[in-house]
């Protein structure tokens, strides 16, 4: 279970600090809902370890991960954009999720190719992210997150700006992940995303 306990954070010129508190079970999705500037992305960055809270704690399976470095936290983030390394091929971008030094086995490569085919990007492995559409890039980012096999997915507006076909495909895919036990924290403005994916809502 993921537990966020009285997590307090404020930027240097911010008068009133944010205070986050919620808990989620594995296999569930919590939607973080709020207006622009309400702290959705800040919460995602705190969970991922990109920002350090002033107080409070983050527990995973009962153990504090508050002081863990980002690479030691059991989660993968997917943002609205800037998820891929532009100079690396699609295959390399996904491969970095499997091995951070790109030491991939033949089995790994086959898993990447199968994954790409599943999301309709078969044969795109050698392409650069710049050659892909927005929806295709998000599919690559999500595929990497899934092949990384972390129990927690942090999604910050991952479907914003995509066409309806891409959205449907990715939603379907996220539901499958949930069914496999992945815990999803979803920050989204979109009512439909929340209705389809979320089991609970945390309003900021």
């Amino acid at each position: 279970m993921l537990e966020v306990k009285n997590l307090v954070f404020a930027y240097p010129n911010q008068n009133t600090p944010w205070n986050f508190q919620f808990s989620v079970e594995p296999g569930k999705c919590i939607a973080i809902h709020g207006a622009s500037g309400s702290g959705k992305s800040t919460l995602m960055n705190l969970l991922a370890g990109f920002l350090q809270p002033q107080s409070g704690d983050i527990l995973w399976q009962g153990k504090s991960i508050r002081n863990h470095a980002p690479w030691h936290r059991p989660m993968t983030s997917v943002f609205q954009e800037h998820n891929l390394f532009e100079h690396l091929s699609v295959e390399a971008n996904i491969g970095l999720g499997i091995h951070p030094g790109l030491k991939l086995t033949e089995e790994n490569r086959q898993a990447i190719e199968r994954g790409l085919e599943k999301v309709g990007l078969g044969g795109f492995g050698k392409r650069l992210p710049g050659d892909l559409s927005g929806g295709q890039r998000q599919r690559v980012a999500l595929l990497r997150a899934i092949l990384r096999q972390q129990p927690l997915l942090l999604l910050d507006e991952p479907l914003t700006g995509l066409d309806s076909d891409a959205r449907d495909l990715l939603r379907q895919w996220l539901l499958e992940q949930k069914a496999h036990g992945t815990l999803i924290v979803l920050a989204s403005h979109d009512e439909e995303d929340r209705q389809i994916l979320a089991d609970s809502v945390c309003s900021l």
Partner: peptide, 14 residues
């Protein structure tokens, strides 16, 4: 990119 690399553990020599 730095944040992504941190999360993926693409550190040091990698």
């Amino acid at each position: 990119s730095r944040q992504q690399a941190d999360q993926l553990g693409v550190l040091g020599w990698y």
